[in-house]
């Protein structure tokens, strides 16, 4: 009798151990897929390929980079969104590149409001540039030339196009967007050829062309100066402009358990701090300012509200 009791107790204990064992089984126990929604060789791809090997060391499992290009990044985004929320599939997201199609109802298969955010890897600030020998020296001059100022861009849905159109609407400045350039560098070359009056592009990229003496940067879209000799939009009296930026933000499908989200977030931050990644960022001039899951979620909420209030401008 007693024997039997002990036996059943042992079984129960064993079951309990097995049970808790499952719950706290060391995640991760299989490779993690890190989706890049663009072809190999781009900026987003480079970021992911830089941090993936470090995350691999930290998490103790393989981190496989997978490129799923198509539909302006939406193909990869929806693939991540639809995958199982077990933390084994995550991706890098282009914001506001993916925010705007969603707000306009032109997105397929993803909803940024319930993505499980893991961390923001980098934020690029925008700046306004004109040709080096341009007669224009301020945004005011550009806006008051009697006709819309021409702005070069890749396509109407691109992040910088969204920034340019919304920002200029905020201050009632007429703008004509010349689209169809083959990449953001090409839009700067178009500026240098004199095809357009000005262009709004990531500051880091424009700085290279200022160094080579090709462009003049009139202002940055930020609150405090990151380049000492360029005034910020806030200083010049356009406080809303600091809201515009380009984010490379990491997230997974909706419903990833909080403990796994936390582990992924910690691993991402730690990887971004690794010497090899820091070295890569410094030499390739790619910004790195990682923030964790909580902050990233807050940022996304704020940006959704911000862009959401300019829906009608975006729809034009």
């Amino acid at each position: 009798m007693r024997n039997r009791f002990i036996r059943s107790l042992t079984v129960a204990a064993a079951a309990l151990v097995a049970c808790t064992g499952i719950a706290s089984a060391e995640w991760p126990e299989k490779p993690i897929t890190f989706v890049v929604p663009y072809s190999p060789g781009g900026g987003f791809d480079a970021y992911v390929r830089a941090v993936a090997p470090e995350m691999e060391k930290i998490l103790g499992t393989e981190v496989v980079v997978e490129n799923i290009p198509g539909a302006g990044g939406q193909k990869g985004a929806s693939t991540v969104y639809r995958s199982d929320p077990d933390g084994y599939t995550i991706g890098i997201w282009n914001v506001p590149g993916l925010t705007v199609p969603q707000l306009l109802g032109k997105s397929t298969g993803y909803d940024l409001t319930d993505v499980t955010w893991i961390g923001n890897l980098a934020t690029s600030n925008y700046a306004l540039a004109v040709k080096a020998d341009s007669p224009f020296n301020s945004l005011k001059e550009l806006c008051s030339q009697g006709k819309p100022f021409k702005h070069s861009d890749t396509g109407p849905a691109s992040t910088s196009s969204v920034t340019a159109r919304v920002a200029m609407t905020l201050i009632d400045c007429p703008i004509q967007n010349v689209t169809g350039y083959k990449g953001s560098t090409d839009t700067i070359i178009g500026l240098m050829r004199g095809e357009v009056d000005a262009t709004i592009k990531p500051l880091a990229q424009l700085l290279k062309y200022r160094k080579s003496g090709d462009v003049k940067i009139l202002m940055t879209f930020e609150e405090t100066r990151s380049a000492e000799d360029i005034p910020t939009s806030t200083e010049l009296g356009y406080p809303d402009f600091a809201n515009f930026d380009l984010r490379r933000i990491v997230g997974g499908p909706p419903g990833i358990p909080a403990d796994i989200q936390e582990k992924l977030s910690a691993a991402l931050l730690q990887a971004a701090d690794a010497p090899s990644v820091q070295e890569w960022a410094a030499s390739s001039n790619n910004a790195l300012d990682p923030v964790g899951a909580e902050e990233a979620s807050a940022i996304m909420q704020r940006l959704m509200d911000f862009y959401g209030s300019y829906k009608d401008v975006l729809a034009q």
């Binding site: 060789g41 781009g42 900026g43 791809d45 480079a46 390929r49 830089a50 990229q205 290279k208 062309y209 080579s212 070295e279 890569w280 960022a281 030499s283 390739s284 001039n285 790619n286």
Partner: peptide, 8 residues
């Protein structure tokens, strides 16, 4: 870019 070089 992958090798930490910034083409410009």
């Amino acid at each position: 870019v992958l090798h930490g070089i910034d083409p410009g």
